[in-house]
């Protein structure tokens, strides 16, 4: 039977799932909005995934994204990896010559510098979510434009409008002011795209050398206005990979595959059938020391399958053993 690898990326806004074959080619890729229910999305998504592939052995499962621990526990993942390593692995797989990765997701954005196929530097947004997918979502809603049409509309702008990009709150008040000056929606949206790109380059990529080829991935890469703004700022063409929206999941699957090749270990994957059993996440505050950590515990049929959140390892180390 064919050996397949599953990658799951649970982000702040979306959950993405892919299946790759032994050579690393994607066979299925799905993108779902979380709507605040990542656990349910994982279960439903996996059911869809099971139907979309022919009977095969799942030889490895990798999870990534901010919800990677939860996903890893629920699925019985073989590998739980940070999203920077995952995104880099996917970009290098499809574009071996890549030297710069721009990634903008729902609530964070990163820049990854690659040289000779290896990560040499990276940066991630720190204190503020300005210039990420959620911010664009919010503004699209305010202007009553579906987010899918947002980028297209930006391309039709006739005049340039400058909008403050440092902070979401400032950008919003700037936008309102510019609307009142009579600029069109297209012009304002274009201004917003440029502000976001300026903010990204100034904050994240400030001290990085952005060499070509540059790959742009993450949900926001779908936005043509942002892509055009990047190309204008960087004065070069930007590559949008075919699987730009699920690159994190592809990376997780690729890394699970790499681990399998190296170790040859059987997968701990629970199997598609077992995923419908109820998983109950619970949280409590540990009172053992002054840190008062918020402990998250996932139970399946009264059995604790995963714990995290403790700084001291009191709970998490007793379970993983």
């Amino acid at each position: 039977m064919a050996k397949l690898f599953v990658g799951v990326d649970v982000g702040s806004v979306s959950t993405n799932m892919v299946v790759i074959d032994e050579e690393g080619n994607p066979l299925a890729a799905h993108y779902y909005r979380n709507d605040g229910q990542p656990l349910q999305v994982i279960q439903e998504g996996m059911a869809v995934l099971a139907e979309s592939i022919k009977p095969a052995t799942i030889a490895g499962v990798g999870t990534t994204g901010s919800g990677r621990l939860l996903a890893g526990a629920v699925l019985g993942a073989d590998l739980v990896k940070n999203e920077i390593t995952a995104h880099a692995a996917a970009a290098v797989h499809f574009h071996p010559a890549v030297q710069t990765i721009l990634e903008i997701g729902g609530q964070d954005s990163k820049v990854i510098v690659i040289r000779n196929g290896v990560v040499t530097d990276f940066a991630m947004n720190t204190v503020c979510a300005a210039g990420t997918g959620s911010f664009l979502d919010h503004q699209a809603e305010r202007l009553k434009i579906p987010i899918e049409e947002f980028g297209e509309l930006a391309l039709t702008a006739e005049n340039k409008v400058r909008i403050a990009g440092r902070c979401t709150v400032f950008a919003e008040s700037d936008m309102i002011a510019k609307q009142q000056f009579g600029f069109s929606k297209a012009e304002i949206i274009n201004g917003l795209c440029e502000a976001l790109v300026r903010n990204y380059l100034n904050n994240l990529a400030r001290d990085k050398q952005l060499l070509e080829p540059i790959v742009f991935q993450g949900g926001v890469a779908a936005n043509k206005g942002i892509r055009a703004a990047f190309e204008r700022e960087l004065k070069t063409t930007i590559i949008i990979p075919q699987y730009y929206h699920v690159m994190g999941a592809v990376g997780a699957a690729l890394l699970a595959r790499k681990q399998w090749i190296r170790t040859g270990k059987d997968s701990q994957f629970r199997g598609f059938a077992d995923l419908n059993i109820k998983f109950i996440p619970k949280t409590f505050e540990c009172n053992f020391c002054s840190n008062r950590c918020e402990i998250i515990r996932v139970e399946q049929e009264q059995k604790v399958i995963a714990v995290w959140g403790d700084k001291c390892g009191r709970y998490s180390e007793s379970i993983s053993a």
């Binding site: 990896k81 940070n82 390593t85 040499t120 530097d121 991630m124």
Partner: peptide, 8 residues
């Protein structure tokens, strides 16, 4: 960040 750095 730390894990990505360690990977690197």
């Amino acid at each position: 960040r730390l894990e990505a750095f360690a990977d690197m």
